[in-house]
Each structure stands twice: as structure tokens, then as C-alpha cells.
Design a protein around this nucleic acid. Sequence first.
DNA 1: CGGGACCTTCCTACTAGTAGGTAGACAACA
DNA 2: TGTTGTCTACCTACTAGTAGGAAGGTCCCG
Lengths: 193, 193
Amino acid sequence: MKSMASTSDKILDIAQSLIVAGGYNGFSYADIADAIGIRKASIHHHFPAKAELVAVLVDRYTKQAAAGLQSLREQAASPADQLQLYIDYWRSCIENASQPFCVCAMLASEMQMLPDEVALRVRTHFRNLAAWLTSVLRAGVEQGLFRLDKRPDEQAQMLMASVHGAMLSARALGDPGLFMAIVAPEIARLRDT
Amino acid sequence: MKSMASTSDKILDIAQSLIVAGGYNGFSYADIADAIGIRKASIHHHFPAKAELVAVLVDRYTKQAAAGLQSLREQAASPADQLQLYIDYWRSCIENASQPFCVCAMLASEMQMLPDEVALRVRTHFRNLAAWLTSVLRAGVEQGLFRLDKRPDEQAQMLMASVHGAMLSARALGDPGLFMAIVAPEIARLRDT
DNA sequence: CGGGACCTTCCTACTAGTAGGTAGACAACA
DNA sequence: TGTTGTCTACCTACTAGTAGGAAGGTCCCG
């Protein structure tokens, strides 16, 4: 039997999938209410304002991502495998169309008109991801697995941009396979061998 | 004396800057009307429906881009210079914050909820840009300027993703310089020398 | 030349519907 | 008993879009 998700979790789940599809202005309280079968006012009970809902949502996403990335570092043997598992995660998300875009990448594109409380949290996720990639690349260099043209932090920014750009191209051209076609050579190029 | 822009051009100009800032759902007819000092209804005279306005806007953008890229191919001596001028264009847009994002990249992120007439045109722009990059890379290889790891069309997709991802990172982290920090090494890596 | 007929552009005033958000009642439950 | 969660009912502001008309220009016909 499936675990019973709380109403506020259900609200956040639906809101996240709606943001992934259409961004901050692409969904409404009415959309969420219809999707989970409650009234608009009940959502306001859990999240008084939209900006607050999205801020909590991004906080939750950032925590989940941090935990997921940390567990990759613990379970995967080598930095090369860690990187591979990271992009495999997004490959499966995009190919089965479950969450075919990073919610923070989506929100980042709208950064200029986001409420401050949301924008700050989106920025934090970008910093966290860049830091994780940097540390994986650095570890890989130390173990002689990677040979980088640039500093690890610079290479991490390049890699992060490739991943987000690949998501965008896959979506724009309606070709899920394009994600790996772009990202796979990019990480292959880091390998020393 | 400056050329007098027609009202419909002014509408498209404002709409484009509003889309760059906040996407398809991030602006309204009222926003445009306020910005250029006319009434909402007058905008409906020029563009009866919002989807049509944006479709015309993307058509115009695609034509301008095609013309601009074509003139780069004619005025720049080598494929390497053509590529450099292309990214220099975006560098200046991002650094002086005039149009710090590609309107089609913005719309592509919202692809899933865009009206069909808009989505199709956004896809066309992505195809055009990929084709231009492919032909520049191919010409560069023929002239011995580039050495590519992959086929020119694959390498073009990788480069396009880097450019869009770099725009996103620059926006997310509020660091205009990040765009060139990501893109410059990416094109340097293509060079044979 | 005069004068319709027409067209373009913009206006005021309006519609139906949706946005985020609020007030207060009711039920379950610790 | 107070707390939590949900509801109905409502609000104001805003959404895209429409109706109808005023002002002005253009073109053609007499």
C-alpha cells in the first residue's frame, strides 16, 4: 500500500509539475485545487500566498537535490560514476517525461520577475549544484580520472550550462534523445583515458 | 532624426522585452498599453489575439536572426570569426542588459503550454540556429580551422546548448560575466591550433 | 474641384472569466 | 477546549477579448 502523502505535500507535488510545465505564472491555485480535488481556499490554509508556496517548494527541492547528490557521492565508487549517475537521473526524467525539466532551471529563466524570496532560493540551488559538480570534478582529477582544460569550478559551470541547455534543446525540438546526445560527449571529454 | 517606428512595431518591441523578462504568461495587453501610452483595445486592433501577437513576434525574431547570421557569414572572414561575432553579440546583449536572453530560449522553456502556432515557430528558430552553427563548423573543418570530436551537427547542438545554458546561469547567478566564462572555453576547444 | 465610400487607427465602455486572497462556519480530533 | 483542515461564499483586481464609434486619411467618381 502506498504511503499517504499529506495534503501540503500533494499541493507541492502538483505545483512542481505545473511549474516544470509552465513556470511561475503558468499555474494558479485553481489548477492545483482541481488536480487534487479540494477547494482553492484549502490551499491558502496551507500556503497563504503563492510566493510562499513556491519558496517552500524550492526549499524542498533544494533539500531533496542536496540529499540525492550526497547519496550519489556515497554509493558511487568513482567520481566518473557519480557524474554518470547524475546525468542518468535526468535522462530517465526526460525520457519518461515525468519531470522533464529542472524546476529551478525553469524558474531561473523567469528570475527577473520572481518574488525575491523565490529568486534567492533558486540562486542557492544553482550555487549548490555548481559546488557539487566542482567537488566531483576535483576528486576525479585527484584520482587521475579526469583531465580538465580549466579549473574545476570553471569546468563545473560549463557542465551545468550544458545540462540545462540540453534540457532546453530537448524540449524545444521535442526530441528527448537530444539530451544525452549533447551531455554524453561533454562528460566523455572530461575523461583522461 | 530617428526613424519613426510604427505602432505595431512598438507593440512587438515592448512585448519582446516583456517576454524576455517573464515569458508568455509574464505580460498582458495592459502592460504593453501602459508602456507605449495607448489603450488595450488598440493593441487588439493590430493583434486580435495574444497567441497571434507572439506568433508574429517570433516570426519577426526568426527573420531578424536569420538575416543577422547571414550577414555574419558574409562580413566575417573565417568561420572562427563568424562564431566569435555570434557569441560577442550575446555577450554585449547580456552585459548591457538590453535583451539579456534569447526570446526563443525563453519561450522554449514554456513549450509545453504554448499555443501551437507559437510552439511551431519557436522550434523553427532552434532548427535554423542549429543549421547555421552546423554549416559554420563544417566550413571551419574544411578550412582546417576546427578539429571536432563529433559530427558538425552534433557539435552544433552541443554548442547551442552551451550558449543557452550559459545565458541561464548568468541570469540565475546574477553574473553577466559568467556567460563568456562558459562559452569562450567552449569555442576555444573547437580550434585546431 | 467636390463629395461620398472606404480604410486605418485609436478611443471609451463593456463583457465573461480568472487571478490571488479573505471571512466565517463546520466538523474531526487531541 | 482549542487546534487543524476543510468548506461555502465572497472580494477586488486583472485577464483576454468585443462592441461601437470618432477622427482622419485615401481613392475614385462625377
